[in-house]
């Protein structure tokens, strides 16, 4: 009987271990959601969410996750929009005009992104708390750029110190720093000053450059960008090669050396052929 109890106990114990290990195997990977606030030079603000999970010790972006974006709290009344993550694990929504009253009601807002539970992942959410802020660019003093960071507090815009930002020139494929300094930190007046050190940077057709001051992924203010156009660039005139004689030009614009060579050869050979055709006429006359 004792032996029988031991066997039963062992079977029950093994079954429990099996169940525990099975439940461990079936644990879903954790989905990490994050959300960022973006304000590009006063254009319509947007939120960008990112979904990733850890697999084999590495983070991997997760596509096709359905996300809900909220302001202030996660309830249907505060829903800003919905979206799906792309192959980079990102989803972007613009803050809709319907959220204007909510936006104007406070200086600081919480943005929440959440996903529902699915076969692959449990429900997840991410939050960003953002204080309304803006950057002002001033270029009154020669080629010195002053950028001031202002945050909306106590019903007014107040300068913010110790904010890190970049000051650069907008180029086609990214930003070019105005000098060797990579980033600046605002002083007690909320301002930084940078000297513009590029002498002959090509600008647009009027010689204009676009200055850009950028706060990137700040925990307090999100990502904010301000731009200002200044006439500090070198006047760039596009010179069309359409009328130049090149090997890649259009018809009738081939290089002179090519035309000379080609026409000399063609005329040379065809003069010989015409001469020979003339010889046939001569043969006919001789045989007449």
């Amino acid at each position: 009987m004792k032996m029988y109890k031991y066997i039963i106990s062992t079977i029950v114990l093994l079954s429990c271990l099996q169940a525990v290990s099975f439940s461990q195997d079936s644990t879903k990977p954790v989905l990490n959601l994050s959300v960022g606030y973006f304000n590009d030079n006063g254009r319509v603000q947007y939120l960008k969410a990112n979904a990733k999970t850890k697999m084999d010790g590495k983070f991997k972006q997760v596509a096709d996750i359905k996300l809900n974006f909220y302001i202030t709290s996660e309830d249907p009344a505060h829903l800003l929009g919905k979206g799906f993550t792309n192959e980079n694990g990102e989803s972007v929504i613009f803050i809709p005009p319907t959220a204007r009253d909510e936006w104007n009601s406070a200086a600081t807002h919480s943005f929440i992104v959440s996903s529902e539970a699915s076969k692959e992942f449990d429900a997840a959410s991410g939050t960003a708390d953002v204080t309304k802020a803006k950057i002002q660019i001033d270029t009154a003093e020669g080629r010195n750029i002053t950028a001031t960071v202002l945050a909306f507090k106590d019903s007014s815009w107040q300068p913010m110190k110790d904010v890190e930002l970049k000051i650069a020139i907008k180029r086609m494929d990214g930003d070019l720093n105005v000098n060797e300094t990579q980033t600046y930190t605002t002083d007690s007046t909320g301002a930084v000053t940078a000297e513009f050190k590029h002498d002959s940077l090509p600008g647009d057709a009027k010689g204009n450059l676009v200055l850009v001051a950028r706060i990137e992924e700040s925990d307090l203010y999100g990502s904010i960008t301000a731009e200002k156009t200044v006439p500090w660039g070198k006047y760039y005139k596009h010179e069309s090669e359409y009328y130049k004689r090149t090997l890649f030009a259009r018809r009738g614009q081939s290089p002179v050396w090519l035309e000379f060579m080609a026409y000399t050869i063609i005329i040379g050979v065809w003069v010989v052929l015409l001469y020979l055709i003339g010889q046939i006429r001569k043969l006919k006359k001789l045989g007449a």
């Binding site: 020979l276 010889q279 001569k282 043969l283 006919k284 001789l286 045989g287 007449a288």
Partner: peptide
């Protein structure tokens, strides 16, 4: 027109 004359032969050979 070919009459095999020396003149014709000469022109022909030169051609």
């Amino acid at each position: 027109f070919w009459k095999n004359t020396p003149g014709q032969i000469k022109i022909n050979e030169r051609a």
